[in-house]
Design a protein around this nucleic acid. Structure first.
Lengths: 312, 312
DNA sequence: GTGAAAGCGCTAACAA
DNA sequence: TTGTTAGCGCTTTCAC
């Protein structure tokens, strides 16, 4: 017990005991067993993060920042992938709940509402990210996909574009940006938007193919909003291969502001999301809860911005 | 005890008891506490993975495949980042060892030899990846960076290139590919290779800047070997901005065969590494050890291939 | 400031 | 096939 105190609350132990313990620890190479500690204290100092998949650079910054922020506070990150098979989701939840983590960060969506209920039933704090809803399960940090759709449509309209199109990955959030984009275009009195849906995760190849499809349609197109920067790079690549000048003949807008966006030729106009900030806020949420602090504001809207560059 | 058996070894329990337990589990929503189980059995079913950083798509496929393969076998992945501060490495090791994982997968390098010794002292199986050395700490799955450097130099020489250059990220493995590339060029009787070193992780921007530097030097250059596909994309982008035709005036070779490489214009010639296979093999190593099987062949060389496309 | 007792929720080992 | 006993290595609680 005295050793436990010396290690965890050194200020509550006499200097002499502290010195003796420290020396013994060093001499023996003792590393406390956190599994036993977790069992006794009911605090695992483990946080689970669930991503649909790690491929595709979308959630990378978030996971990276989350891991770092947690590590700084003495917490460890357990990673789970929900995306690659629906049937696995149940097993994933069992695995998570069985470890009694101090919190779960949902990056992207957990498919079943049932699953989220189980997490709450297990009394595990939940942070949803990358989205905004007025009725989160527990805590939430994200931004509004609807507002982004509207904002990009207004942006393109303001630049004189009149025949808008969208290339969107087949996932829920991209679909909602798309829907808002179409609605805004309608409100602005523009022709109905041509949507092309591509499989998720999005790729450069999908972007190239999508532009091909778009150009084959009657009516013509003078602006494309892509649901990822990679898709936008595909559109840029295909446009160049076809001798279609960007931005004079075609405006291109991406999503994500990946590191490479600013340095493409032409530089990519895109929607900037601060993925790292999302990770940091999620860590703050979980840690606050784990340390017993009550979280006053459970919803944080980190917003977005349109970064205007040469491509639009 | 009977419940424990029904859950873990159902075949060693009577059908009737099994049915009763199953029903009770469903009724109550019971999820076994793996922390307690881990403490009692000295098997945590947790595997730690250490990456220098998650940004940069290099280790993504490996981590992704590792997570999936472990999950399939009932193991969970704990993620640690070693790269963002040297001082953190000690804390990271404490955190890892303290959880008594069933194995540690080192993706990239753990800086201190001392650290690796501590892992072994704690009796934790270690898998090193993405490299090849005749004297691994424990188990190893990777490929030879030296052979890659040689192969690419020979490849470019075979295509008639005579003034080779390299753009390499500032990390150990890239440096070794570079060194082998220079050595091979020398053996082939070519002029000494111009190396440009850029900070790690590599970016498109670095690639653009590097080509600028290369072209400013006297002597000229007709082929560039880049230490990542992103860097190669930067070189392609800059070449186009300057009206320098690829491949006629400049051959470009990347590294990694990222998803986008095949669909660039021109399509990128690059070195293909099977990151996912590395992850799967690492999982196999760890699981074999955890289940008490002895691993006969502790070194697996997964090799590489040069994917010849339009850019070289 | 230090220490003794009890127990966290499981599993190993052995007995019936 | 089922059940009993004794821990795993810590922390909580309470007494000194």
């Amino acid at each position: 017990m005295t050793v436990s105190r010396a290690l965890n609350t050194p200020e509550r132990v006499s200097p002499e005991v502290l010195a003796r313990v420290t020396a013994a620890v060093r001499r023996s190479g003792y590393v406390p067993n956190r599994v036993a500690g977790g069992l006794a204290s009911a605090r695992s100092r483990l946080v689970a993060a669930v991503v649909p998949t790690l491929s595709g650079p979308v959630f990378l910054d978030t996971v990276q920042a989350l891991t770092a922020a947690l590590a700084d506070a003495g917490y460890q990150l357990m990673l789970g992938q929900s995306g690659y098979a629906d049937s696995r989701e149940d097993a994933l939840l069992e695995a998570i709940i069985g470890r009694r983590p101090d919190g779960v960060v949902l990056t992207g969506i957990l498919h079943s509402a049932e699953g989220r209920r189980r997490l709450l039933a297990a009394n595990i704090p939940v942070v949803e990210t990358w989205d905004l809803t007025p009725t989160p399960i527990d805590m939430l940090v994200g931004f509004s996909h609807e507002r982004i759709g509207h904002a990009v449509a207004a942006f393109l309209h303001g630049r004189g574009r009149r025949r808008l199109a969208v290339v969107a990955g087949d996932d829920d959030r991209a679909r909602r940006r798309l829907a808002a984009f179409r609605e805004a275009a309608r409100e602005l009195g523009l022709a109905d938007v041509e949507p092309v849906t591509v499989p998720a995760p999005t790729t450069l190849r999908s972007g190239r193919d999508a532009l091909g499809q778009l150009l084959a349609r009657p009516g013509g197109v003078d602006a494309v909003f892509c649901s990822s920067d990679l898709l936008a790079l595909g559109v840029l690549t295909e446009a160049r291969a076809r001798g279609l000048d960007v931005p004079s003949r075609l405006a291109v807008v991406g999503f994500g502001d990946n590191e490479f966006a600013a340095d493409l030729e032409p530089a990519l106009t895109t929607v900037r999301i601060d993925g790292a900030a999302i990770g940091r806020q999620a860590a703050r949420f979980v840690i606050d809860r784990a340390e017993g602090r009550t979280v006053a504001e459970r919803i944080v809207d980190l917003g977005f911005s349109i970064v205007e560059r040469a491509s639009a």
